[in-house]
Design a protein around this nucleic acid. Structure first.
Lengths: 341, 341
DNA sequence: ATTTAGCACTCGAGGACAGTGACTGCTATT
DNA sequence: AATAGCAGTCACTGTCCTCGAGTGCTAAAT
């Protein structure tokens, strides 16, 4: 455990570094009103903190900079929050106006987070795998083209056009809809598909070729549905160019790439899912060098108490945690309160 | 009109500059095998070309660089194309696999363009305003929640959830669907809405409150539809960081911003719509300083002969026009061939 | 009358160099 | 234990200089 003085100095150093981004030296600290120590004393403390691995000197004649471990300690033990005002809360609710379907709502949330924080935001989408079918309907566009409408239990609606091999009558279509609504409701896409396969085999024996074709198409579509979805949504990537940390365009590019399609993030999100509550990941904790000097502030969101996914913000480790952490937290809370079955 | 020698030298200079990005000097040019002139002679020519406004010296002891006017001349008069191979064409068709709805198809096209060229791509979406309703259907989710499905003449399908003030019966819903399908098909959204308004007024007098509420909701939704759509789709923005032209992150940011929501582009696209065929816009021709040293290669795309929108690629003016122009052209052709009513 | 060779000139890039200032760690003193 | 003092380190900055690429101009050559 660190003595009060050590903590105090470390916290002040953090504050200065977060706001200026330049290495902080002993004399700068000793001049602070709340620090009534000579620079020499401060120096001794800083040397100790460096020994412990919380600080680091870019070079001998520069001040100190926090290490990833230093950030960790700061976030875990020293962070005091700067709560958003009620007006702020109201503004968030406003922007997440409620009459959107789930996907759009999550998209809006991503935009909002990125706008509020000036950094990139990430939203992990609920895994569709668990959603169940609530309603299926067909619409005849032309004798050989049928529109399939799938309503999921999360209120998401998706539709696909099926091109048929041969034409189908309105009655047949109706029958098919009835069949699906009778047999497949309450099943996940995967299960519904399995059931469809079984029926398919049966129908095939009975030589009902017209329905067979439609069923086959429906099957192909359901499978298409399942694979198509990206599990991650990223907004505001371009905001990151403003930070000196990412001035090297080479690095920035790699970071963008990683944000595009990467596993590393998903693993962190999984960790966040496991142990609910807000989590901060810092630099090396990402498990990938691309995220050097990045931090992620993440939090699960829920629907009626059940954890659905994770939302968060990615930016330079040198971010204003005091503001950002409550912002992410509040946004997660509000989103959770807006999500209804 | 420029003499052959002037043209030849200018073209060679362009070639060198496009591939290296460094100012080209007289001696470099005179050493080229196809140039059998001394550097002194070349210098005289270059001085003349600079006089005419086609070239520019960054400083006294540097070589020459084309001006926007120079690019213009090059593109209009000197450009020879490097036709994509048949294999290439096949690859494009492959990626634009056909069973997508229109919006997704355009999205794929944008991705494809950006991937092929390594630059940002822009697709101007067909103005929905002209599309007509082809089919309307309702699905009852619960007594107070109704899903509205709109099928447009361009095969696009959109759906919205209507939250009702009071519950509605299946019969009423059916009647409403019939009414809309009878009255509003073949009308644009705007016209359909106008018709709805008229009916609304009549129904109001007859005090059919249940239908009234639904109609009102439907109206609100139709209007929502109309405004919601972004006219422009941009893909691959982040590819631009790789070009030295955009190394200044300040400028890059502004460019991103402009690409986000800007009018300037739409105006250029309008010009492209007017006079069909491929067009190239260079730097100052954008009419906005943000696009300094950018070029846009754009081309309309059609559906069954009728111009729908414009697609294109944005990158540094110093791009490989010989490759990019045919790529954009071919993609536009293929897209047009894939779009069917 | 072109074309070319030659020459003086310009200017940016890059290296060497010294001075400055912001630090540090250590040691001796309070 | 805290501090003052001091020597040392190192990035940063500005100056000076050289180098080289490239120019424009003029006079000679074709």
């Amino acid at each position: 455990m660190l003595s009060d003085r050590y903590q105090m100095l470390f916290k002040n150093l953090m504050g200065l570094y977060l706001s200026d981004g330049k290495p902080v030296g002993s004399s700068t600290l000793s001049k602070l009103p709340e620090v009534s120590l000579s620079s020499a004393t401060v120096r001794n403390v800083l040397a100790d903190l460096e020994q412990m691995g919380l600080l680091h000197s870019p070079h001998t004649s520069a001040g100190r900079v926090p290490t990833d471990l230093g950030y960790r300690f700061f976030v875990d033990s020293l962070l005091t929050f700067q709560l958003p005002t009620l007006g702020h809360e109201h503004a968030i609710r406003q922007q997440l106006s409620t009459d959107l379907n789930q996907d759009r709502l999550l998209q809006e949330t991503a935009k909002l987070l990125s706008g509020m924080t000036g950094m990139a935001s990430v939203v992990m989408l609920p895994s569709k795998a668990q959603e169940t079918l609530q309603q299926v309907d067909f619409l005849m566009l032309s004798p050989k083209r049928v529109l399939m409408v799938l309503v999921f239990s999360d209120q998401d609606v998706q539709n696909r056009v099926v091109e048929l091999e041969q034409s189908i009558s309105a009655d047949q279509l109706h029958a098919l809809a009835n069949f699906l609504n009778a047999e497949c409701l309450g099943l996940s896409l995967r299960h519904a598909r399995a059931k469809l396969m079984a029926t398919l085999a049966r129908v095939e024996q009975e030589h009902q070729t017209a329905e067979l074709a439609l069923l086959q198409s429906a099957d192909a579509l359901l499978s298409q549905q399942a694979s198509e979805r990206r599990p991650l949504m990223v907004a505001g990537k371009t905001k990151l160019i403003d930070y000196e940390e990412f001035a090297d365009s080479q690095k920035l590019r790699q970071l963008y790439h990683a944000l595009q399609d990467e596993q590393a993030l998903l693993e962190l999100f999984d960790k966040t899912l496991q142990a609910p509550g807000l989590k901060v990941f810092i630099g090396s904790e990402f498990g990938d060098d691309v995220y050097q000097s990045c931090s992620l502030v993440a939090r699960p969101y829920t629907m009626e108490g059940e954890v659905l996914g994770v939302l968060g913000v990615i930016g330079p480790s040198r971010m204003n945690y005091q503001k950002v952490v409550p912002q992410v937290d509040l946004t997660g809370k509000i989103l959770s309160s807006l999500l209804k079955k």
